[in-house]
Simulated assay, not measured.
Amino acid sequence: MSRYSLMPLPCRADLFEVAVGWDSGLDTYFITVFGTPVIQREPEVRLWRGNVWRDLVAAQELVAIAGQYAEVPADLTTRLEEDRIAAPHQLRQPINRVISELLGRVPEK
């Protein structure tokens, strides 16, 4: 799993953080957009994609969504694709088999 913290766009003062990355367990990229926290409270989650099986399978799609909320480094697509290659979804790992079974997917033999 990888995670990058992106700086919200200057016009998005209502945001605290935009987190993006690769989740090999769910075989998806993810983005979480956090609102500015209220005193003594956790930041509100404004957007959460990639929290279900294969929700975002293309790094370019993730980067396009992130660009609506945050400053995106020029090499982010490449870094995310490298993360996926370095840590691919492996159904044979016990936790991934459990997740697949819970989601009603038939495990590979």
Rank of each mutant, 00 (worst) to 15 (best):
V98Q: 11
V72L: 05
L91K: 04
L9S: 01
P94D: 11
R3K: 14
L9M: 08
R46W: 01
I65P: 01
L47F: 06
A58L: 11
Q60I: 06
H89W: 11
P37F: 06
H89G: 08
Y69C: 09
W53R: 11
L91R: 09
P43S: 05
A58V: 01
A74G: 05
R79G: 00
R105I: 15
A58G: 00
D27I: 02
V52F: 02
T36R: 15
R84I: 08
D23K: 07
A59E: 01
C11L: 13
L26V: 12
K109T: 12
D75M: 00
S24D: 15
W48D: 10
V38L: 13
Q93C: 10
V45H: 05
M1T: 15
N96R: 10
R49G: 03
V63A: 03
V52A: 10
R46Q: 09
R49I: 02
L26M: 13
R46G: 02
H89P: 03
D55C: 08
L76E: 00
L80Y: 03
E82V: 10
I99F: 09
A19Y: 04
L26D: 02
S2V: 06
A86N: 15
M7I: 15
L56F: 04
V38N: 09
I31T: 03
D23P: 07
V33T: 05
D83S: 08
E42Q: 09
R92G: 13
A87V: 12
I39N: 02
L103K: 09
V45D: 01
R97T: 14
Q93A: 10
V72P: 00
R46F: 05
F34W: 08
P73Y: 00
D27T: 08
I39K: 12
S5I: 10
E61S: 14
A74E: 06
T28M: 07
S5A: 15
A19E: 14
M7C: 08
V98K: 13
W22M: 09
V57T: 15
R84N: 07
A59Q: 02
L47D: 01
R79N: 03
E108D: 08
P43D: 08
D23W: 10
G25I: 12
R105P: 02
A86K: 14
R54P: 03
A13R: 13
S5K: 15
R105L: 14
F30R: 05
R46M: 15
V33Q: 06
R105Q: 10
W53A: 03
R79A: 06
R49V: 04
V72N: 00
Q93S: 08
E42T: 07
P8W: 01
R97V: 10
M1P: 13
R41M: 15
E81R: 14
I85R: 13
T78R: 14
I39G: 03
E44C: 08
D14E: 13
V33A: 09
A70W: 00
D27P: 04
W48K: 15
I65H: 00
E44K: 14
V52H: 06
D75W: 00
P37K: 06
Y69T: 11
V38Y: 09
